[in-house]
Computed example of a mutant assay.
Amino acid sequence: MENSGTPHRSVLLVEDDPANWLTLSAVLEEAGFTVAVAESLPQAGQLLEGQPRYDAVLMDWSLGDGDARELIPLVRRRVPAAKIVLVSGQGRAAPPVQVDAVFHKGAHVDELLACLERLLSPGRG
């Protein structure tokens, strides 16, 4: 999906698998997003405790050092307007409370980009 001239947007990607974060960050950057990557819960916490200006937080549901849902309260406190998208290898389920969407591993990345565009469109949220 090509950058359609949308405003500059920033994503925090929380993913512990290097192959996944390299692929996702490349796709997001090609679509016009600035991407910060955290490979662990503590690293994500450090990025969120700084001066975060993320439009979206995209996080792998199950990380090697814990469950990404542990970050939700911190995201909501530090960047309350950010949209949260969990990436899940589990079956299709409704998003947990305070999560804006769930992206399922194995789905085409265009679906992820379309989801982010919907969530970040003016007048949403």
Rank of each mutant, 00 (worst) to 15 (best):
L47P: 00
E49F: 03
L63G: 12
L24Y: 13
V79F: 02
K83G: 05
L48N: 05
G89A: 15
P52L: 04
T23A: 14
E49M: 14
S40N: 01
L86M: 15
G32E: 05
K83R: 15
D55N: 13
R78Y: 02
Y54C: 04
K83W: 00
R69L: 15
G91H: 12
S25M: 11
T23S: 13
T23D: 11
E30Q: 12
Q90I: 02
D55Y: 03
E30M: 11
S62G: 07
A82F: 09
W61Q: 13
V75I: 15
L86P: 09
A82R: 05
D100Q: 05
Q43W: 04
V75A: 07
G66N: 04
V87S: 06
V27H: 06
W61Y: 13
A101V: 01
V27K: 02
Q51I: 04
T23L: 15
L28E: 13
Y54D: 02
I84V: 15
P73R: 08
D60T: 00
R69I: 08
L41Q: 08
F103G: 00
Y54T: 04
L47I: 04
E30G: 13
K83S: 11
L86Q: 09
A31K: 05
G45C: 12
D65P: 04
E70S: 15
E30P: 00
A44L: 13
P95I: 10
G45S: 15
D100F: 05
A36S: 07
A93M: 14
L41K: 07
R77V: 02
Q90N: 13
A36C: 04
T34C: 02
S25D: 09
Q98L: 09
L47A: 06
R76Q: 11
V27R: 10
